[in-house]
Simulated scan of single mutants.
Amino acid sequence: MPDAVMPREAAAALKGDAALPQKCLDCGQRIGWVELFFSLFLGLFKLTIGIISNSHALIASSLYSAQDFFSSIIVIISMKYQKRPPTEDYPYGFGKIEYVAAGALCLAVFLGAITLLIAATRVIFAGVTHPAHWVAFWAALVAFGANVMLYRYSECAGHRLGSPAILTTSEHVKGDAVSSILVAVAVLGTKAGIHHLDPLIAILEVAHIIFMLYHMLKQSVGGLMDAALPEEEQEQIRTLVTAVDGVEQITDLKTRAYGQSNEICVEIELDPSLALAATAPIRNAVKDTLLKGLVKPSTVKIYLAPAGEGRALASSRQQAVREALARYYLGHVKRHHLEITPSSVALRLTFYSQVLPGMRKQICAAVGTNIENNIEDGTVSVSEV
């Protein structure tokens, strides 16, 4: 039977500060708006100065701010929607909203990058007639200092909350700071007589933006396609689970990331001689170990299976349960939770709301009788969740 827990805050009180998780959550709520207005102002500032000073590199740098602006919108949307509880239509919650928004961001910024790439290429082939003005140099230095401060703020919030959207935004801000330095170098180069340096750096900046968009889109597609967690994280999960007393081995491990949370489904083998009541402490110990050992909040689902010959017995009893449910499942039973030991079968059914209480009792009794007729020994209990 799967046992799922979704912690409300970060998986642990980082650095032992009991007040820190709430502070981090408050920071996570603010960071999106801070970056939103900051990036909007800085992007318009660089775009305006770039046009006035005839600096293609500074105009290209404004694309970084545009990317930061849209990333901030993603952070705001994700922080808002991920707080919503799961619904009947969306039983797994709204964690993937980040990936959908990130895909839209990639498309918007990519179109702007291609437009600027074409413009900078035309300038190189047509020849530079008006070198960039010194005002672009000073604007680049101002942008660099502002981006460094924002990067430190967003990186801290992203690591504490474990938010891929905030961490992605912090990397964009860092790229924006680097691009500002390149703009300053481009202006110095044009003043030294290297007039093509400004559009060349603009092309390099656009290429870097497209490269970042590719990785961002790759991450978004992976999230939407339920890509597994990195191998090092899976190995950490295996190490934590197998260290729990009573766990014979891990027979199956499935993981996926959805926004700021992970889902971990692990099947473990236990001693087949254990009674059903004796398996609960082991299952709870595995769950607690994972929630305490992993920094990122996770939904943990644990499936129990008897080791050795008991596994074949469990398989035959699962078949008996499936046959029993086949007669009543469609239109009546919404979900079922199953626990099997060598001496017992415990089945809990979740019915659709339109199924009347009297009918629910009849189905539970009929399913229990059907299972008993298909197993040689052991007690059978069927109840409603």
Rank of each mutant, 00 (worst) to 15 (best):
Q354L: 08
K46V: 05
A228G: 05
Q67S: 06
L188Q: 07
G259V: 12
I51N: 14
T341S: 12
L111N: 02
A120F: 04
V385D: 08
V221R: 13
M149P: 00
G259Q: 11
S65P: 05
T48C: 01
A326L: 09
E235C: 10
I118M: 11
G32E: 03
S170K: 10
Q319D: 09
T341I: 07
T369A: 04
S62M: 12
V345W: 01
S61H: 09
I203W: 07
V380D: 06
D252M: 11
A277S: 12
P297C: 03
D68N: 15
E339K: 13
Y92G: 05
T48L: 02
Q67P: 02
E267P: 03
A140S: 14
K46C: 02
K96W: 00
A143I: 03
S53G: 02
R122G: 06
K80A: 00
E171K: 15
V367R: 10
A60E: 06
K83D: 03
T299W: 06
A60M: 08
I118G: 00
I375A: 08
I268W: 04
L116S: 08
D226R: 07
V355N: 07
T289A: 13
T239D: 09
T341A: 01
R122F: 05
N284Q: 12
V247F: 00
I340L: 10
L229Q: 04
N373W: 00
K174F: 03
G145H: 10
V148P: 05
Y151T: 13
T341C: 06
T87L: 07
L338R: 13
K296M: 01
H337F: 04
E376R: 15
L294W: 01
A285C: 04
